[in-house]
């Protein structure tokens, strides 16, 4: 039985991952903002076989509450083997372009809050010399694109942070998994037209769950995004700046 802390636990992707932990009979602690949704998720996971150690409502942007919530989770779980960070928001890029305030807020939610949580989690795990940190970033982190570069910049910040953190924690036996999903059909992407590249949260979860279990460093979800993003990254800048993406 593993002890799993999930932040952004009510996200469609995180819920699907949590169900796989539930199947294994793992113990979970859930964090997100909406209390009702947390309860619904906790009930579901309980019926599915998880032992739910508790849940807590937290706005991740309230950085001053992080310590207390992590303390509570750690206590309820009796230690944290796996910390999965999955919260996020996807802003409308055009709105950000007109509003520095919104842009800052999105960077706050998608980067600063995550980095703040990671800072505390890393300290605790390093001390215990065990555990795994898994964070959902995005393929958007791989290269800034005009369609979502505010979101992309936030994810890239976290992605780069994780790269460094992985090096640092390696010596302490703590693993770091960076998860870069492509298009997943969830409430976050409700407004998008779905095409062939889209995957279901259940399918994404399987791959993520396996990657966490086997201790992978970086995983693209679904797998083919690795190749798509390789092409996008390799594209010469002189060409890249002219295309719509």
């Amino acid at each position: 039985m593993r002890k799993v802390l999930i932040i952004g636990a009510t996200s469609a992707i995180a819920t699907a991952i949590a169900r796989l932990f539930a199947q294994d009979g793992d113990r979970v602690f859930l964090v997100a903002r909406n209390e009702e949704h947390l309860k619904a998720t906790a009930d579901d996971l309980t019926v599915r076989g998880a032992s739910v150690a508790g849940y807590k409502s937290l706005d991740v942007n309230a950085l001053d509450r992080h310590k207390a919530v992590l303390d509570e989770a750690e206590k309820a779980l009796d230690g944290i083997d796996i910390a999965l960070i999955a919260h996020g928001t996807l802003p409308v890029q055009a709105d950000c372009e007109r509003s520095p305030g919104l842009t800052a807020q999105e960077l706050q939610t998608n980067a600063v809050s995550t980095i703040a949580l990671l800072t505390r989690l890393a300290e605790r795990m390093e001390e215990r010399r065990s555990g795994r940190i898994a964070v959902i970033t995005s393929v958007a982190a791989d290269r800034g694109r005009q369609s979502n570069y505010v979101y992309g910049a936030a994810k890239a910040a976290v992605d780069t942070f994780l790269e460094g953190l992985r090096q640092r924690l390696h010596k302490s036996g703590v693993g770091v998994t960076t998860i870069r999903p492509g298009f997943i059909d969830t409430p976050m992407t409700a407004g998008f037209r779905k095409g062939l590249l889209w995957a279901k949260p259940e399918a994404a979860a399987k791959r993520i769950h396996a990657a966490i279990g086997s201790g992978r460093d970086v995983v693209y979800v679904p797998f083919f995004w690795r190749w798509i993003m390789l092409v996008i990254r390799l594209m010469p800048r002189s060409l890249f700046k002219r295309i719509e993406l």
């Binding site: 469609a12 619904a40 998720t41 009930d43 579901d44 019926v47 599915r48 409430p187």
Partner: peptide, 9 residues
């Protein structure tokens, strides 16, 4: 299909 949670058993 998004309402796919168990509630109690």
């Amino acid at each position: 299909r998004g309402l796919d949670r168990f509630i109690s058993f």
